[in-house]
């Protein structure tokens, strides 16, 4: 060249980087570990987030045993149990989707992601059945709680033939249902968010985005999904089973 400026030597050119590697990371491995650390910090925060509601539950249960005893007759443990089985199964398929992504089994990956999504949808359908029945009979939050004697659960009136709907109002049953709807509602919102994330993953998996060194999104959404499962593992016995 006439300017006399030396051309950059070939050896100084940047090494070729995988297209999935963000500019601020050295390697895909570092990128994966950083992402995972971030997700774990988020999940730790999620536990604290739910902890507020578990505290409300513990305080009311600790001080109003009788309210929780009568309340558990309103919840159908069969529906709650069904949802437990559905969520545990979806946790298996979520864990399996991570394995499929690592092994680059694209068909298995898509299948497990779709099954996880369908289980989440089934969970919400059962939730809808439960919620609509409670709202229908008036078993709702705080001062809105008003259940007619004819609508009291059969198991409750069988055990306590003299109980009236107004007794439950005076007992403060509305507070139990405020806690119930807040806990299961916040959990349900997490399930809905998870469903959205799984749609996103299905689109990316179909597009072929993931491989053995780049599957962080599948892993991290699965971690989130497992935490949603763990929260339900506590909600089911605490709300539905023990009276």
């Amino acid at each position: 060249m006439s300017t006399g400026v030396a051309e950059p030597e070939k050896s100084q050119a940047l090494p070729e980087r995988p297209k999935e590697l963000a500019m601020h990371f050295d390697s895909l491995h570092q990128q994966y570990n950083a992402g995972k650390l971030g997700v774990w910090l988020f999940l730790g925060q999620e536990l604290l987030f739910f902890c507020g509601l578990f505290t409300a539950y513990a305080v009311y249960r600790g001080n109003h045993q009788e309210m929780f005893h009568y309340a558990h007759y309103f919840l159908d443990w069969k529906l709650g149990g069904l949802n437990t089985v559905v969520l545990l199964t979806s946790s298996l398929t979520a864990a399996w989707s991570v394995r499929a992504a690592q092994l680059e089994q694209r068909k298995t990956l898509i299948a497990t992601l779709v099954i996880t999504f369908l289980c989440a949808a089934a969970f919400m359908v059962v939730k809808y059945i439960e919620y609509s029945h409670k709202i229908h009979i008036g078993a709702v939050w705080s001062s809105h709680f008003a259940v007619a004697d004819a609508d009291l659960p059969a198991a409750l009136t069988e055990r306590y033939p003299d109980i009236k709907g107004e007794d439950l109002q005076r007992m403060g049953m509305g507070t139990f249902f405020a806690i119930y709807f807040c806990m299961t509602g916040l959990h349900g919102i997490h399930v809905l968010v998870g469903m959205g994330l799984y749609i996103w993953l299905i689109i990316r998996a179909v597009r072929g985005d993931f491989n053995r060194k780049y599957y962080g999104a599948v892993d991290f959404v699965a971690l989130y999904w497992h935490i949603v499962d763990i929260i339900w593992i506590f909600l089911f016995p605490l709300l539905y089973l023990i009276g």
Partner: peptide
Amino acid sequence: ALPGTIGHVSHWQTLVKVLVTLLALT
């Protein structure tokens, strides 16, 4: 595990055993 895979690959039998244990505990 494929060569160069990042992270631990869980065996599918392990995953199924975990689910069975969880269902039994339920």
